[in-house]
Design a protein around this nucleic acid. Structure first.
Lengths: 188, 188
DNA sequence: TCGATTTTTTGATATTTGTCAAGCCAATAA
DNA sequence: TTATTGGCTTGACAAATATCAAAAAATCGA
């Protein structure tokens, strides 16, 4: 079983046979470095699963560019609420390297319920997990300083630090690139 | 129609008749000022809708007490992921004043699907909205300073500022009470 | 490979925010 | 009523973080 397939199974909680029944819903897409998978203001027509490479999720707000997340291998890439509500995206997804991903269209997403009996339960669990991740992120900002947030991310996901430009990482952590650089310096 | 009933209808997107069919699932509870509706570590057995008074959601983490949210009239009170997954609560809900609320037990929550045809859709929309609120909160911390976060909250929910102790509000905004006090001072 | 561009670091300095201590005010209980 | 408590503010100072400018390092394209 491919790593990507097992990460989709994991993300949604499918059994292998459940996944096999909707396998064809996932369409491979290649994105060149620098190109966008999704742009702020466009309708969110696909949910992507990254197989190789990294996408950066970012948006413009309050006159700033803010990096919100990185989708690397095994992660999904989508403006979730835009996708589910059929609305326009609030964010951009841009490829930081050549990226290959599997795309699930909104139309096919809505057909999963016909193929997978438990889909209502699985979808609910999926959404709840997404909610929980954000909850923890809010709590991090309420209870930790820049260095603690850096350490937390580094402990959980050290690979990220040699895969993406540090100025984007700084933005995602809510600090300037200079501050991140100094924290790194301190640790080494 | 009572304000509380219409806020439940609004929260979940029920029609009035859909709500009527599950009306009995909601059980009134009174909580005395200072008492807890939910404690960190307890199983989350109920989802509460506040009718009167205010509850404070808070938790202990990294050696600090962090206020995460206030549930005032019309809002719900629950550790959502704990409730949906049948897990223990990560947070406390304490009454800042005498509170009356309607409680929906997990058992009854799971029975809504039998009574309301569209429940799967409505529940999904409800979860997506919750997700979206947290998304915006994360973005606030990535793109705004203390004063901007204060102003944003004040513009959206000014009543909060004369209903809850400001030191708790400061914590929810991710700043110290002194900083909040000085920002307030500046504005007046 | 070289030059150009981007990313990262470093230093100096400014600003924001936190900490600590004290005082004030208002609500509340004895 | 007074005394007490909790909540809020204020001031002085310290620490964290941002800003700006420049240099160094890494990356990329021709």
């Amino acid at each position: 079983m491919s790593a990507l397939k097992s990460s989709i199974i994991e993300t949604f909680g499918f059994s292998e046979s459940e996944f096999n029944s909707i396998q064809d819903f996932f369409v491979p897409i290649e994105i060149k470095k620098g190109d966008h998978f999704l742009k702020q203001g466009q309708y969110v027509r696909h949910l992507g699963f990254v197989e190789n490479g990294i996408l950066r999720e970012f948006l413009y707000t309050n006159g700033k560019e803010v990096t919100k997340w990185f989708s690397s291998s095994g992660y999904f890439a989508v403006d979730l609420s835009g996708f589910l509500f059929g609305q326009k995206s609030k964010v951009n997804y841009q490829a930081l390297s050549d990226v290959s991903l599997l795309a699930l269209s909104k139309d096919n997403y809505d057909k999963i319920a016909d193929k997978v009996q438990r889909w209502n339960i699985l979808e609910k669990m999926f959404l709840t997990k997404c909610f929980s991740v954000l909850e923890n992120r809010v709590i991090s900002h309420l209870s930790m300083n820049a260095e603690e947030r850096y350490n937390q991310l580094f402990d959980i996901n050290p690979e990220l630090f040699n895969q993406v430009p540090l100025n984007y990482l700084a933005s995602m952590l809510g600090m300037t690139p200079e501050t991140l650089s100094r924290i790194r310096n301190k640790r080494s």
